[in-house]
């Protein structure tokens, strides 16, 4: 009976030792598992950061390309505007008649003629202003001619060389040629203006 008791005690001691060892193993395994899990988590986070960064790069790239596309389209649009009527100054745009009142038939014809008559009157005023400009230009040229004549008579250190006189004379001649051409255009403008007036009067 005692023998049996001793055996039982021995078995219990062995079992408890094995249990302790098992617990130890379990703890170690748990620790290893935790480390690995942390390692995995770190790896996943690192990977996620990398993916996020790449994603951001891609977004930036796409946005950059998009902006480039917009800029290109804008530039093309502006180019097109410059070559079309849209880019013309307001003054020129104003030349176009806009039938805002929604007129038709005879009323439209009359309104259109009236608008054109106003334009003729504006042009007539411009021609008058150009005439004044021509007169001022002629006076300026005459004054320059007189100054040159006076300078020609200078003696000594102030005397003009033949070359200087030729240069100044060329400037005067050029201005006179341009003024004559300008006067010619005014004259032809007047003729055209009168023809335009006649054309419009034929409709009334």
């Amino acid at each position: 009976m005692n023998y049996l008791k001793i055996l039982a005690v021995l078995a219990m001691v062995t079992l408890s030792g094995q249990m302790a060892q098992g617990q130890n193993f379990a703890n170690q395994a748990k620790k290893i598992g935790k480390d690995q899990a942390q390692e995995m988590k770190a790896k996943v986070e690192k990977h996620a950061d990398g993916m996020k960064e790449k994603g951001q790069q891609k977004v930036d790239e796409v946005m950059k390309k998009g902006q480039e596309g917009i800029n290109e389209a804008k530039a093309k649009g502006q180019e097109k505007m410059a070559s079309s009527n849209m880019a013309k100054p307001a003054q020129e745009k104003d030349m176009k008649f806009e039938n805002k009142e929604g007129l038709t038939g005879a009323a439209l014809g009359q309104a259109r003629t009236k608008y054109a008559e106003n334009k003729v009157a504006e042009s007539s005023n411009k021609l008058s202003a150009m005439n004044s400009k021509a007169a001022i230009g002629q006076a300026k040229i005459n004054a320059a001619k007189q100054r040159l004549e006076n300078a020609k008579s200078l003696k000594g250190a102030n005397a003009l060389s033949t070359e200087d006189i030729a240069i100044k004379q060329a400037k005067i001649d050029e201005a006179q040629t341009k003024l004559n051409s300008f006067k010619g255009s005014i004259s032809s403008g007047k003729t055209k203006l009168n023809a335009a007036k006649e054309k419009l009067n034929k409709f009334n």
Partner: peptide
């Protein structure tokens, strides 16, 4: 009329 007016302008 419109045609003529435009030509004049």
């Amino acid at each position: 009329t419109i045609e003529k007016a435009e030509a004049v302008e």
